[in-house]
Amino acid sequence: MIADRIKDLRIQHNLTQAELAKKLNITRSSVNAWEMGISTPSTAYLIELAQLFHVSTDYLLGLSATSTLDISSLNEEEINIVYSLIEYFRSKK
């Protein structure tokens, strides 16, 4: 589960394994091992990944199916636009 979440988030953020590794100051093979399920990130890297991708560690670990979106830096008008978009997409299901 965590392997898929890391890979999906990396792709959603248009990062290569090498680019993600550079941001975390680790090797590309470490990222590859995480994505292949050969190894798992340490607690420290889980926290870094969660902060980098703006998701919870519970989401990364598969304990929560809900990802979050940090809107704290948006103004009220921008927040309303985001909520409108969410409602629009929900109505299309």
Rank of each mutant, 00 (worst) to 15 (best):
M1I: 07
M1A: 08
I2T: 08
A3Y: 03
A3H: 09
D4H: 12
D4N: 15
D4T: 13
R5A: 10
R5S: 09
R5K: 14
I6R: 01
I6M: 01
I6Y: 00
D8Y: 13
L9R: 02
L9A: 06
L9T: 06
L9M: 11
R10D: 05
I11C: 01
H13F: 11
H13I: 07
N14V: 06
L15K: 13
L15S: 06
T16I: 09
T16S: 15
A18N: 12
E19A: 15
L20A: 06
K23A: 05
K23W: 00
L24M: 09
N25A: 13
N25Y: 11
N25R: 12
I26C: 08
T27M: 05
R28P: 09
S29H: 12
V31K: 07
V31P: 03
V31A: 08
V31L: 11
N32Q: 12
A33Q: 07
A33V: 00
W34L: 05
W34M: 05
E35G: 04
M36V: 08
M36G: 00
I38S: 08
I38N: 10
I38Y: 11
I38C: 00
S39C: 10
S39W: 04
S39F: 08
T40V: 12
T40N: 14
P41H: 03
P41V: 04
P41L: 05
P41M: 05
P41W: 03
P41Q: 04
P41S: 04
S42F: 01
A44P: 00
A44C: 00
Y45G: 02
Y45C: 03
Y45F: 15
L46A: 02
L46F: 08
I47R: 08
I47V: 11
E48Y: 01
A50H: 02
A50V: 06
Q51V: 02
L52A: 01
L52G: 01
L52K: 00
H54V: 01
H54F: 05
V55H: 06
V55K: 04
V55A: 04
V55Q: 04
V55C: 09
T57F: 03
T57D: 02
T57A: 09
T57E: 10
D58T: 07
D58I: 06
D58R: 06
L60V: 03
L61E: 05
L63C: 07
L63T: 05
L63P: 01
S64I: 09
S64D: 15
S64Y: 09
S64L: 05
A65D: 15
A65Y: 10
D70F: 03
I71C: 05
S72H: 07
S73A: 13
S73D: 11
L74G: 02
N75E: 15
E76K: 15
N80R: 14
S84M: 07
L85S: 09
E87L: 13
E87M: 13
F89V: 01
F89H: 10
F89C: 03
F89G: 00
R90Q: 14
K92V: 01
K92W: 00
K92M: 03
